[in-house]
Simulated assay, not measured.
Amino acid sequence: MIVQRPAVTAALTAAVLVLAAGCSSGGQDGTDHRESPAGRRSPSKSPTGGPGAQPPPTKGSAKVTRTLTTDLASPWGLAALPGGDLLVSSRDEGTITRVDATTGEKTELGAVPGVSPGGEGGLMGLALSPSYASDHMVYAYFTTESDNRVARLLYDEKKPPGEQLGAPDTVFKGIPKGMIHNGGRIAFGPDKMLYAGAGETGDTELAQDEKSLGGKILRLTPDGEPAPGNPFEGSPVYSLGHRNVQGLAWDEQKRLWASEFGQDTWDELNEIKAGGNYGWPEAEGKGGEKGFRDPVAQWKTSEASPSGIAYAEGSIWLAGLRGERLWRVPVRGVTGEREPQSFLKGEHGRLRTVLSAGGDKLWLVTSETDSRGTPKKGDDKILEVEVE
């Protein structure tokens, strides 16, 4: 059943977007083996890229130029403020912290009421309102005792640290929750609509159920209504057949990309089309099955487990959890096969989130755990990475 906030509608002119999806996850022990520490991938045959587009180099590069900050606890979501400073969420502590982009100094803004951490759930994705300059609203995706939901909070910089976050205003609720596969990434697209990756909670049947919010990419107005132009009338569902989407990014052609945790075989990078069915649980990886969209690139689950993704310098960059590396997939101007390329293998442990810092720079967030998969308290950092 779809449950959403009563309408607070404003007239919004929306251009229907294209593209993005993917995410890989779990073992059979109730944990997400993508969410635990190391695969191999097949070459990528991308159907994208327009005439005249200048493709990026076949072989790129990625170099860590500095460690911005350390001693973070279970960092998950990341959003850049207009001046360049960062907001980072703590999945397990339910707090949002501001990080100075120059000095790395951390200031805790406050806790988000109603967050109920557990398993892979908690306070996850962050996104700034398209009208942040005037409304100062921060959107957050988080797990409660009953569901996953999206709320917006007023960020008042004039108040003392610890009191700067207003009460959550729930704009969308009723997304299924579980100990695993809660999705959690949110982002505003070029059309100023809010996109959310929702996992299937380990109940694989939800992914193919058009009436369920589980195993989907959702497209909403900023007020939480189904966005104009969605493929299923009156529904927030934008694409289906997903296992656990934790990465969303757009390129300069306004194409949407998403990372997908596979189960035991293939992790995926998908180009998302409105109404597209990405196959789970009937298909995992490239199969050419009728009615399903194949991924643009795929990896063995031991080599990727991609969570966050970002677009920079003509390529999609994927942060690998179990794979403990940063993957690059060229997409701009690509008409034939391009081999995904990996960087930083094993150098910084598990990688959770990657965000464009403008130009050839990325912010990269680590996600260390102990041997049981429990986050190591205060052991994570944000790195600045120069890429080509």
Rank of each mutant, 00 (worst) to 15 (best):
G184P: 02
D223K: 15
I186Y: 10
A10P: 04
T107D: 04
G358Q: 12
P168T: 15
P160N: 09
R322Y: 07
A357P: 04
W280Q: 04
E205M: 15
T95H: 15
Y139T: 02
A258Q: 10
P47E: 03
A111M: 07
R372E: 00
W363N: 10
S315G: 03
K159I: 00
G30L: 06
A20N: 14
L344R: 09
E120T: 05
T301M: 07
T103L: 10
A38H: 14
E205H: 15
S129M: 04
K300L: 01
S46F: 02
Q253L: 08
G262I: 02
F172L: 03
Q208M: 00
A227F: 02
I96S: 05
G122Y: 06
G30Q: 08
A127P: 03
A127M: 05
D29K: 15
R325M: 06
P168A: 10
Y141W: 11
A312G: 03
Q298K: 07
G84S: 10
P306R: 12
D264A: 14
K377M: 03
T58V: 13
G189Y: 14
D71T: 14
G50I: 11
T95C: 05
N230C: 08
A198Y: 03
S134V: 12
R152Y: 01
K59E: 07
W363A: 15
L78Y: 08
E233P: 08
L351C: 09
T97K: 02
D223R: 14
L383N: 08
A127T: 06
R34I: 00
A10L: 11
Q246A: 09
D223S: 15
L68I: 15
G336V: 05
R91M: 14
G119A: 12
S129T: 00
T67N: 14
E337W: 06
P190A: 13
A140Q: 02
G30P: 04
L165R: 13
A310Q: 07
